[in-house]
């Protein structure tokens, strides 16, 4: 597989790309195992003669009013034991042994401090990776599917279908993307993560569709397509088996850059208060608090660094891919 080697070469070639790849993998692991890194209940617990598996996910009723700190205090030595998550707080609740510390500076208890409702910043950042990456991946996946499909159809069949799709693309492109998403989010009143994903996907597919259309037009009259036609293959087979694989390079680049852009959009929306609905943790929403409480620097640093690092990593990977796929893409 030529492309796979290509990808491996890129990763090998540059230190910055290696670091970016590493960071993306790291942040993905954090997102997947967020509940094991930051939770208010232990992963494995023997307490009161009973063993609880994955209490951090299942939240059994018996432990309803307990949390890590209280448990540690209540446990009898030699009899009870447990495996605790490294960050012993949940992203939603502020009770830590019954005490709430509002806007607390970083301390031994809360390494990165607490927010205006006494929630642990580190725990919230850890859980925020889920929202950011989730929205990023899902929206990009969705709009790539839409964009690739419409782009293929427009480029391959041409004619009135092409002009209709092209007009739609032009129309959508004349709406300022972020402004448009903000407007729709605002009009819909209720906001949910799924809704946000769909809106972002529905407004951002146009770039992909333009890209794919141009690529399809390029190879449409190549000999291998003509011979495929001569063999009597169905249009769908020619499109998706013969033409599309040729244009996947630019699409991959656009996907990586798109993830960065989408994560930024989600964070910006949440920053303005129209994105991820509370109390779910989102980096953007955490930065709103930093704006409202300028004297607390710790509100700003960790979410900002996480957001910046993620976006930068995806951008670097995308750019490295772009350089290898087609250096001339810089101009489009």
């Amino acid at each position: 597989m030529a492309r796979k080697n290509l990808l491996r070469n890129i990763i090998k070639s540059r230190i910055s790309t290696k670091i970016a790849m590493g960071f993306v993998i790291f942040i993905s692991i954090v997102a997947i195992f967020a509940d094991f890194i930051a939770s208010d209940l232990p992963i494995l617990l023997k307490y009161d003669g009973k063993i609880y598996w994955f209490a951090n996910i299942t939240h059994p009723d018996e432990l309803k009013y307990l949390d890590n700190i209280t448990l540690m205090r209540l446990m009898v030595k030699g009899q009870d034991w447990g495996i605790f998550p490294p960050v012993p707080y949940s992203h939603l609740q502020s009770r830590a042994g019954g005490e709430i510390e509002v806007l607390g500076a970083p301390s031994v208890r809360h390494i990165m401090g607490t927010d205006d409702r006494g929630r642990d910043i580190l725990a919230r950042v850890v859980h925020g990776t889920r929202v950011s990456l989730g929205v990023g991946f899902a929206a990009v996946l969705l709009y790539i599917v839409i964009g690739v499909f419409l782009g293929c159809v427009a480029g391959y069949f041409g004619g009135w279908l092409d002009s209709i799709i092209s007009r739609i693309v032009e129309t959508m492109m004349s709406f300022p993307t972020f402004f448009f998403i903000l407007t729709v989010q605002g009009l819909l009143q209720k906001s949910s993560i799924l809704q946000m994903i769909i809106i972002i996907a529905l407004t951002r597919w146009t770039d992909i569709s333009r890209l794919v259309r141009a690529e399809v037009l390029k190879v449409k009259n190549e000999n291998f397509v003509l011979s495929a036609k001569a063999m009597g293959f169905r249009n769908s087979r020619i499109l998706f088996r013969h033409i599309l694989p040729n244009s996947m390079g630019p699409v991959t680049v656009a996907a990586y850059l798109g993830i960065a852009g989408t994560i930024l959009i989600e964070a910006s929306l949440s920053f303005l208060g129209f994105g991820t609905p509370p109390p779910a943790a989102s980096w953007g929403e955490m930065l709103t608090q930093a704006y409202e409480n300028p004297q607390c620097w710790w509100l700003m640093v960790l979410p900002g660094v996480a957001l910046f690092g993620t976006v930068l990593s995806f951008n670097i990977i995308g750019e490295a891919l772009r350089d290898s796929v087609d250096p001339r893409l810089m101009y489009t």
């Binding site: 964070a267 910006s268 920053f271 300028p294 910046f308 976006v311 930068l312 951008n315």
Partner: peptide
Amino acid sequence: TLLVFVLYSLPAFWTGVALIRLFCGTG
């Protein structure tokens, strides 16, 4: 190039808040 990449990836609202903090009296 690195600088440009950093700029490109910095979220505007974070930079704005940071600039206010640095240059507008509170910092």
